[in-house]
């Protein structure tokens, strides 16, 4: 198990393999990132924030190679967060409590695993996908599940921690951390892999301090 590529995006910027690629100035930084990446994918604008961030961070990883060379069922998608689809859930509740009608286009995004569906559609990936909910980023759970995937003969796993949470004062906390793992590379055991993963995320978060408390 070896991390070949990682990306991180938040309000403060977009990072690829530890290097800052973009900084954002706009409040709607996800749209700004879409423009900076030069994407032309109209469906993007309809997506919830979890899917938008995941699509963007995957484009960064994609630009580094590996992913584009894989078979269509090869990349396994392994995602997690702490708050499921809480941000869209609150918007959907508002649609029927404040705006008169439950909104179907919001309802379809009230499941966290929709983001893996959006990735599968975008890149035509037919492989395995799982979404976990853990109270915090749980590096040991990722390490364990990656180890299982390797034992089952998998080659590549695209993993992600994607969060979009709104509090009572309408303050939004968002980040997206993706890492592509070559499962056949035996250079790390589970505990050292988990430790490396924690360190990587800490570095990304510190590299743009304040984004989680915006």
């Amino acid at each position: 198990m070896k991390i070949t590529t990682s990306s991180y995006i938040s309000a403060a910027g977009a990072f690829l393999n530890g290097q800052q690629k973009f900084t954002f100035r706009e409040t709607n930084w996800q749209k700004e990132c879409y423009q900076q990446l030069g994407l032309d994918y109209p469906k993007f604008h309809k997506m919830d924030h979890l899917s938008k961030m995941t699509v963007l961070a995957t484009e960064l990883i994609y630009s580094e190679g590996h992913l584009n060379a894989l078979m269509d069922d090869e990349p396994e998608l392994l995602f997690a967060n702490a708050n499921a689809s809480q941000h869209t859930d609150m918007k959907f509740i508002e649609s029927y409590t404040q705006q008169g009608n439950p909104s179907p286009s919001l309802f379809v995004y009230t499941l966290p695993n929709i983001l893996t569906g959006e990735l599968a559609i975008r890149h035509k990936w037919y492989g395995e996908n799982t979404f976990f909910i853990t109270p915090q980023f749980d590096s040991s759970l990722f390490a364990e599940r990656l180890y299982h995937a390797a034992r089952k003969g998998g080659n590549w796993c695209l993993c992600g921690w994607v969060e979009s949470k709104v509090d009572e004062k309408n303050k939004v906390t968002e980040e997206c951390f993706l890492f592509l793992v070559a499962l056949t590379d035996n250079t790390a055991d589970r505990s050292s892999f988990a430790a490396a993963l924690d360190e990587l995320l800490t570095n990304y978060r510190n590299g743009n301090s304040g984004n989680l408390n915006r």
């Binding site: 109209p42 309809k46 919001l106």
Partner: peptide
């Protein structure tokens, strides 16, 4: 209605298809 927070009215052309992969998707 569609929560398209990225778009402004100017982004939607009068005659552009709203559905399908063209236009608004």
């Amino acid at each position: 209605q569609l929560s398209l927070e990225d778009l402004t009215p100017a982004d939607i052309k009068d005659d552009a298809p709203l559905f399908g992969d063209e236009g608004l998707g």
